[in-house]
Design a protein around this nucleic acid. Structure first.
Lengths: 337, 337
DNA sequence: TTGTAGGCGTTATCAT
DNA sequence: ATGATAACGCCTACAA
């Protein structure tokens, strides 16, 4: 049987209350007794029982992280950074992959709430739907613990958002490509999430501004497996049957690389005949050749800010409800502007 | 204040014990009272307090997952699969990224143990060192909870290993390349972990068998950032200054792609002038062109088996201490054999 | 089948 | 500064 606080108090010749105070350095304990207790704790490798502790403190210093798919490149990086930041501040991360179904997300959110996490971080904007009604479950959760949104935004008490201005980033990337004189640019996307729609609008506005025409016949939605580059390239090939294009702007690096694959298969050269811009500036940008121009959404800065905000909230300080960073186009060799 | 089991028992007109029994369907409860209690629980949205529950049950149905870097492609996939399997069986995953330093790993292992997880899963073989002494901390952990190893092996009571036979997979891949007549094959690796060394030995044995000579001057260790394809390609370029080669076998897809980048930069054609084999069969294999031949280590089968074994262990059944799967060379376009 | 009551290991409150 | 002791909310003998 593991040692209890009572055992330690006996051996140290003090009360359990004193041991507890040492453990949490809560109230003032005389240096000498403190040392005495510490020594016993060290000597016997005493570890307080986490459950009993949770009961008393009403917290186990644990943060729930929800994401749709933790193996998605963006999510994987985000989770890594978040976990590191949390760890460094004495918190553990409870991970939960929900998939993309709304009902399932709700269930998991409640499940993880029942584990008494101190807060919940929602990774990626696919947790936020365009219709307020579907976001009700987030508001409900926020009544229990602060809810942190990474790369999404939702206005509600106790909901805090940290995100990249995907709209502007995509708008500027689109302007760069369209403005450089490349003809017949198309836009590829694979998510209608909060950020997915922002990005699309960035392209649309850039297009309308330049040509005063409706871009909707140049926008294509891919709903296949996100990690099957091959499927994506077939998808692009199908587009090419009905539409001429010399530029591709993609809402995700993998879509961009699928387009490159198609181009290379059909003998089109990049960037001479086809320019490509991706999004997320993931490891994939360095794997293809030529290397992919992509928008960096400064994920690490986002995660850092998110955890800082979270710590403020948990310690009762005032914290910003929404922090927005700017994305940045990283120019590589699939573009010439 | 949240409702307690006592409140529910009052409203239902039964004792707390009966409510508890309904909650855990432990002992037999008459269908009528069961329904009565259930209705109250539903009506008030009652959720039992997780901490108090943990105290009674001595478990919160939580499994600790440790990995060095959760954004590593292999680890990210593994974590995703594991979390899904665990979730499906009523367990939550507590994630912890330790980095590659041994001391840090030990600390985190103890930290996560103190959270009273029901078991610990170590993802990736970098937790197992060649020297037994350095693995002592794993043996210690296994005294407290069952320890599961994904893609590593360590013989000790309460330690269970599920892995791919990386040695054989790499041996066969090496034989395939060497046997096809490709001259001056080199081997690249970036980890001296349990599996890293197995893979290297696979190559060495294949080489020795064919040429009866020492392969050590053809084996190169990369110790830079694993996700910087560019650094890897410079590393390969340096190798090329002193060594002629027409084949590259890499212990990881990113190393292989770095080699391809070098080749493409210097105008060497793949696979005519240079054949390449990667390892892990990751998403990267489809991003480069030509697409990368790579060894698949059937990660999903491994994770499934691991969780099955874990469930057996936790329910007190006998379980296999070591399960080994075979890897498989997936031939794509960077090779011609 | 059901209820009573004690215990789980801490923390927090109140004295001293 | 320190010690008793009452919560905390649930589970589980044991009793009925």
């Amino acid at each position: 049987m593991a040692l209890t606080i009572y055992d330690i108090s006996q051996k140290a010749g003090v009360s359990t209350a004193t041991v507890s105070r040492v453990l949490n350095d809560s109230a003032s304990v005389s240096p000498s007794t403190k040392k005495k207790v510490m020594d016993i704790i060290q000597k016997y490798d005493y570890i307080p029982n986490a459950f009993a502790r949770g009961m008393g403190l009403r917290s186990l210093q644990t943060i729930g992280i929800l994401c749709a798919d933790s193996s998605d490149l963006f999510a994987a990086k985000a989770i890594y950074y978040l976990e590191q930041e949390l760890q460094a501040n004495g918190y553990e991360a409870l991970l939960c992959c929900t998939g993309y179904n709304l009902g399932v997300k709700k269930n998991y959110l409640n499940l993880i709430l029942s584990k008494k996490v101190d807060s919940i971080i929602l990774v990626g904007s696919n947790f936020i739907a365009p219709s307020q009604l579907e976001n009700e479950y987030i508001a409900d959760a926020a009544d229990q613990v602060p809810v942190m949104l990474l790369n999404a935004s939702f206005s509600h008490p106790h909901v805090y958002s940290v995100l990249c201005d995907d709209y502007s980033a995509m708008y500027e990337a689109s302007c760069a490509m369209i403005g450089s004189g490349i003809e017949n640019v198309v836009y590829l996307y694979n998510s209608e999430s909060y950020s997915g729609l922002k990005k699309k609008k960035g392209f649309e506005d850039a297009w309308r501004e330049k040509f005063s025409s409706d871009p909707s016949d140049r926008i294509f939605y891919y709903d296949g497996a996100p990690d099957s580059i091959n499927d994506i390239s077939l998808f692009v090939e199908r587009i090419a049957k009905g539409t001429t294009f010399h530029g591709v702007i993609a809402a995700d690096d993998s879509l961009a690389i699928g387009a490159m694959k198609y181009a290379q298969r059909t003998g089109r050269s990049i960037p001479e005949d086809l320019s490509v811009i991706g999004y997320n500036n993931s490891v994939l940008t360095g794997c293809c050749s030529p290397e992919l121009t992509s928008v960096d959404n400064c994920l690490q800065r986002q995660t850092h800010q998110l955890v800082q905000t979270l710590l403020q909230v948990l310690s009762g300080e005032e914290a910003p409800n929404k922090v927005v960073f700017s994305g940045k186009l990283i120019r590589r060799n699939t573009t010439r502007f």
